[in-house]
Design a protein around this nucleic acid. Structure first.
Lengths: 326, 326
DNA sequence: TTGTACGCGTTATCAT
DNA sequence: ATGATAACGCGTACAA
């Protein structure tokens, strides 16, 4: 193991018998500003010595970073990893590198991350917000750090965002399920609070059904047996709508459901993977497109990044990536 | 939206009527080196102006970064997100921030990430390697950039790692399944190649069973129906061992298995979540502890980070976090 | 085509 | 307790 001292650009310059300016130009791809010979000379030295730039110095001099923070509400969700992949695919095409921070469904963690992102001068941030308090986020705008929201919006602050058509698709799905054959609906969801996503979904459902019973639970503590004590899971006149895939899967894998998997559909929900379809091949679900959402978010961010300093306001976009009931 | 220019430490110094040295001391928590009065004065200005340090400059001056890269082979796996959470929990306690890069099961992507990590001067890296080529990684060692491997090892290079007891637990699980009642074993796995994890698991199985048929597939293309044409899934004398949770779930949700869920166990596998247990409550599986593995990896990295420059070799640790058959 | 010299924002050493 | 100032490593006018 060779323990080389850190080489600097001036070391390379000396070794190549050129000035640091020339080396710097080489490093920045300005090859047309130098003779082929010197370019080769420099290239040789650099590969031989395995030299790498000090990116802190680069950032300081160039006044910009190429790191984009992606703050996910909880990476346990398949949804997160999928949109992250979408984000990275776009970002990397523009020379940015996307790094994932996990809020772990914890408001304090999210706040800490936002603080970090803020301090580490990332070039921009894509945020799936946990908080509904826009004050935490305003800071980014004040400091001209581009931000785009994904999955969820914030009520009282105008900024770029990528969401899905929660309200419309919920409404549409309900309409497809021949409302006449159900007398009531039970919605199973994580706590609705003010989260735009969940609020919109419930609202969409309520446009079709009058009798809507919303049951809030947390997936970590979700117990189907206990649920069965308050809800008649086998009542064919009661439609179950599950707003989160993990909860849906737990329901579908419950023995009472496995038995009736081929009967008339009396359960549906929002899904991100194909797994619910394995469990109930004949049922329809509301399928989101997280990868696409991520890609869109990244595209918007790139626009903000590559536009002049002060026109964040001008470039604000609110994109809706539709989900499908199928 | 106020469009403030970026404040620097010297701006703060002027506003507070002190020198930049004093402000710098304040920022670095050396409060005992100044009067209470000046500390308050500086604090006031900083909060009022919402000043933040330029971390590129800090890094340049301090010659160190507080970013740790976590390069996952594919974040679709629940396994990844779980160990990432474990990593972050330790890292953040030491003031480091962990950022996740996703290789997306793609060797080229992994290589690109390693290159990035290398160039962005992160403080260290935790890698779940896709490659079996240690040359790619040797560079990190050469440049004194601490690295610890997670989940998988590399044959020909000595470095810190955290793995599980793949061989032993596979062997143990086989022994528990009363080998006499099975005449053969079918192993279903993603391509084994040289991946240490899969190799060890298969080896463990083979110590107990002679008749082992290894079927390689990719989870994206996995088709249970097709598998059924070559393997008799309902043969009670044939034990199915699935090395990857996602494949296992697809098998368990297949109609033919749902029917026999309460019979004698003729299928098992490696799992990371509770989902397979929902599907087959009476079966036993090999459960890993990704969160713990992540935490261990981070602890090792911290040691490398906080020890002197040149003794990576001295601090090499190879930790095994056991999995359990239950 | 190539080189000199200054600036980027902060830390840390040495004075005072 | 506080201040002046030389690094840190690189980019980039401006010169040559």
């Amino acid at each position: 193991m060779t323990n080389q001292q850190k080489l600097t650009i001036s070391d390379i310059a000396k070794l190549a018998n050129v000035s640091i300016a020339t080396v710097s130009r080489y490093l920045n791809g300005q090859l047309n500003q130098m003779s082929e010979a010197t370019a080769q000379k420099i290239k040789k030295i650099i590969t031989e010595t395995d030299y790498i730039r000090n990116s802190a110095a680069v950032q300081l001099a160039k006044k910009r970073s190429n790191l984009v923070a992606v703050v996910a509400s909880n990476i346990d969700e398949y949804f997160s990893s999928e949109y992250f992949k979408g984000i990275v695919s776009i970002l990397s095409a523009f020379g940015y590198i996307g790094v994932l921070l996990d809020s772990d469904s914890n408001l304090k963690t999210e706040k800490a991350h936002l603080e970090s992102v803020y301090n580490q001068n990332f070039a921009g941030i894509i945020l799936q917000p946990l908080t509904t308090d826009s004050a935490v986020i305003r800071k980014f705008l004040n400091h001209n750090m581009p931000i785009v929201l994904i999955d969820r919006e914030l009520a009282d602050l105008e900024m770029s965002s990528v969401t899905t058509n929660n309200f419309e698709i919920a409404k549409y799905a309900m309409a497809q399920l021949s409302p006449d054959s159900f007398s009531s609906v039970t919605v199973i969801t994580e706590p609705v609070k003010k989260l735009s996503t969940r609020v919109a979904r419930v609202a969409g459902i309520k446009t079709v059904f009058d009798q809507v019973n919303v049951i809030e639970t947390r997936s970590e503590h979700f117990d189907v047996n206990q649920l069965a004590t308050t809800v008649d899971l086998n009542n064919p006149k009661n439609l179950l709508v599950v707003l989160k895939e993990r909860l849906l899967i737990q329901l579908l894998t419950h023995p009472s459901f496995l038995m009736q998997a081929h009967q008339t559909q009396n359960i549906t929900g929002f899904i991100d993977t194909a797994m619910p379809r394995y469990l109930a091949p004949n049922f329809k679900f509301i399928q989101q497109s997280p990868y696409l959402m991520g890609a869109s978010a990244a595209e918007i961010l790139i626009k903000h990044l590559s536009s002049a300093n002060n026109d964040y306001q001008q470039n604000i976009q609110n994109i809706i990536v539709p989900s499908h009931y199928k």
